[in-house]
Simulated assay, not measured.
Amino acid sequence: MRAPSGANETRAVRLREDGPEARRTRGGRGGATARFVLGRVVGLVATLFAASLVVFFSRFVVPGDPARFLLRGRSPSPEAIAEVTKQYGLDKSPIEQYLSWIGGVVRGDFGRSLQYRDDVSNVLLARLPVTLELVALAAVIIVLLGLAAGIFASLRRGRAADRVILMTSTALGAVPAFVIAILLIAVFAVQLGWFPSFGSGDEGWDRFVHLILPAFALGLAFVALIARVTRSSMNEQFVREHVEVATSRGLTRSSVVLRHVLRNAIGPILLVSGVLVAGLLVSSAIVEQTFGLAGMGSLLVQSVDRLDFPVVQAIVLVVVVAFVTINTIVDLIQPLIDPRIAAGSETR
């Protein structure tokens, strides 16, 4: 008795799904993803190692004797120079000094601050919360306003609203952060009196109010860039064939935009957003100085001015680690959004 043709077709489909060719395909995709992740992790470690070398050995580029910088005296005695040289390990070779320093960094020991006479880790931990809160608030402003402006401009492409957003974003992107900070202080702090213009405030709501103007000053220029990238990426997707097919099938405009346009356009937006958010740590120094915030940016400026080498090295290394780590995380997230990225990395 012969089996029905439908049962034979179902059995054939199952054989194709579970057959050796299908298993090889799945195994190939899994191997490509694993190699993609491994490559990014190896790149992260190599970049951090190279950055640690640059951060440490840049100290030797500064002209003069480091021992005399440490003593800060006009005419230190030879005995004082010899004591400081031994105390800070300056009598060792540069390689030995680097190994000693990087070993301490791995254990969380960045040395002692020369101006605060305290462990560098304690000095950083006292300033880190303000900078992290400022960067987090600025990142939220950048992503929300940038995405909203870019999506609105793309949906109104070719119209007056699109041109206005495009011109405004171009103008904002050309204005330095300190100029935006001065304008915000003049309008919202001096004229209107809505927000404070100086200091970090106390923890909680007071801290949030003190950080609103600095966060906008830090993020507005980046909002313009995210808006332009979002607009460009969505406009590129609107002319793709799969969007035209979805529209011809009678799907609602909101469904087409969310499922077929924005979803496929999110890759470049995510990449640029990750780079910008990581760059906020570098850009925060000027804004923190302008608003008198007790963060890591202002600490870096003060430490450079006072030649506090251990603090400068620690802050630069922390910023580099954060920047590289965030970019690596973005690289690892992208294949989850578009698996072709991991597969494409195998064929390049």
Rank of each mutant, 00 (worst) to 15 (best):
N8V: 11
E9V: 09
E9I: 11
T10F: 11
A12Q: 13
A12V: 03
V13S: 12
L15Q: 13
R16Y: 04
E17W: 11
E17I: 12
E17R: 15
G19L: 07
E21W: 08
R24E: 15
T25M: 14
T25V: 14
R29I: 09
R29W: 10
R29A: 12
G30S: 13
G31L: 11
A32K: 11
T33M: 15
A34C: 09
R35S: 12
F36Q: 02
F36D: 04
L38H: 05
R40T: 03
V41A: 09
V42H: 04
V42P: 01
V45I: 14
A46C: 12
T47H: 04
L48G: 07
F49E: 03
A51T: 10
V55C: 05
F56H: 00
F60V: 00
V61R: 06
D65R: 00
P66L: 09
A67C: 03
A67N: 00
R68Q: 11
R68A: 03
F69V: 05
L71C: 05
L71P: 00
P76G: 05
S77Q: 07
P78Q: 12
E79T: 09
A82Y: 04
V84T: 12
V84P: 00
K86A: 15
K86R: 15
Y88H: 14
G89H: 02
L90R: 00
L90H: 00
D91L: 04
D91S: 05
K92Q: 15
S93H: 05
S93Q: 08
I95K: 06
E96R: 12
Q97P: 01
Q97G: 04
L99I: 08
S100G: 15
S100A: 13
W101L: 03
V106C: 05
R107E: 11
